[in-house]
Design a protein around this nucleic acid. Structure first.
Lengths: 260, 260
DNA sequence: CGCACACTTGAACCCCCTCAACCCAAGTGG
DNA sequence: CCACTTGGGTTGAGGGGGTTCAAGTGTGCG
């Protein structure tokens, strides 16, 4: 358990690690002027975690917030019976520990080697007092999360297993811009079980559906943790729920149509 | 289309409608000192809507925010094919139009006679500039919403139809403190279709399950828009998913147990 | 009254879950 | 080197909860 290097830089330097941070645009720091950023840099700490490490326990007092700067993080809740429930996957740029009056809302585990930028929440709160821009940015992040949550609820309500997996693949593809020669390569740092849990289906269904996609030449599976998308457009359509009339989508007629 | 009365009160009066508002404790206004509250009152407008009126269109520029002061509101999204998707029900005290950078996240329709307190978002934003308490309160509300959304996702992922409806009834019961003689009476301002849509099941399943609960003497159904809960504890257990081993709960073994 | 609409109930089907076996790669240890 | 184990992933067979389709049963309102 080695101690991470603590980053402390004098104010107004302008060349502190935060102002030269590649991730500034996609993280919280986006909202801040150089002055505020320097103040943030004064107590930001870079931390690293190895694969499999759980660095946030659900329900623990939320002393810190984090920004992911490298790797992928699994977010999960623990049910009373002890089994876990995957609530999401956090990638580079994602903010952790947003709202936690009663402790962290979910636990976090490194799915691969992970780097984080850690902020003390109490100091962050102080910074918030006289930086409306930052607080506004947090509200903005919260609203993005809410929209994402509603999207996920939509998926869980109406989509079939095939549609859920298509959505999952397409979303992963969109978020990581790593297109290969034959098609877009999507990395899956998580296990089948974690995918299944996240999407509200079973491991077997995940496996079977991937096999089905492969048989239809929509994807290839070079390794268990990597998938190459061949039929991007087809998957997009499937994810949108626009096709496969055979595979019934639940509730398609449960409410009156508003438009025609 | 009658014009609602505009409420304008001089600052520092202390007896403006906002400071004497019954709902102050459970709404946004909770965060504000009398001074800020008076400033809020200066541009708060009371509005009323009749049953069935849609007063927020999804995607429209979000010019206003609202607090529900009477009645129940249905929140919904419109799918590309025109059919609607119920995302929630807002009751007294609920804040609408929280986060809407790209227009309102969902539409809103009055399920019964509804009163709202309307705030211009631009003016609210100005107030936010020098009232960290208010902004903090908004963050707090957003976090509550996020927690609720995660709870709902949990429901949609793992719970059976019976458990979903038990959860729904219990939640409604908790939120409205209206206990009768024989049991707690729960009002259902929404149709079966809207309940079904919200819970991710079909109308028929809602109806059948209610009938089943009735047959088991857990509820009675005086009218279509009202349910009396007899077996509160039983429903609570069912909602928690702790019982009915027969009714399989999906994914119960998909992931390794952490505790023993 | 009669039409419309919401809700209920019934019967058949189907997707997905459950259970169980199997495959395969990576250790492990003799 | 090989037998054995272990864990993740795949595949198959069977069953069940919920959907779908379809026909009742109220219930409000002109």
């Amino acid at each position: 358990m080695h101690r991470p290097a603590v980053v402390r830089v004098a104010y107004y330097r302008g060349n502190d690690p935060c102002s030269s941070c590649q991730l500034r645009a996609q993280s919280v720091c986006n909202a801040m002027q150089d002055y505020d950023l320097a103040r943030l840099a004064a107590f930001a700490v870079e931390r690293e975690f190895k694969i499999g490490e759980t660095f946030i326990e659900e329900g623990e007092p939320a002393l810190d917030s984090f920004t992911v700067t490298r790797g992928t993080v699994k977010l999960f809740k623990l049910l009373p019976d002890g089994c876990q429930q995957v609530t999401g996957f956090a990638r580079v740029g994602h903010f952790l520990g947003l709202a936690a009056p009663d402790g962290y809302a979910s636990g976090a585990q490194a799915l691969e080697a992970v780097s984080l930028c850690r902020f003390s929440r109490s100091k962050l709160r102080m910074l918030l007092q006289d930086s409306p821009a930052l607080e506004n940015r947090l509200l903005q992040i919260a609203s993005t999360e809410l929209v994402a949550a509603q999207e996920q609820m939509m998926l869980l309500r109406r989509k079939t297993a095939r549609e859920r997996l298509a959505t999952f693949l397409v979303m992963r593809c969109r978020q990581s811009v790593c297109s290969g020669l034959l098609g877009e390569s999507v990395s899956l740092p998580m296990s089948r079980g974690e995918i299944a849990d996240y999407l509200g289906i079973t491991i077997e269904t995940v496996s079977r559906t991937f096999s089905s996609f492969k048989a239809d030449r929509r994807i290839t599976i070079p390794s268990n943790r990597e998938i190459v998308i061949l039929g991007r457009a087809w998957l997009e359509d499937l994810a949108a729920g626009g096709m496969e009339a055979g595979g019934r989508s639940p509730l398609s007629d449960s409410l009156p149509r508003k438009c025609a």
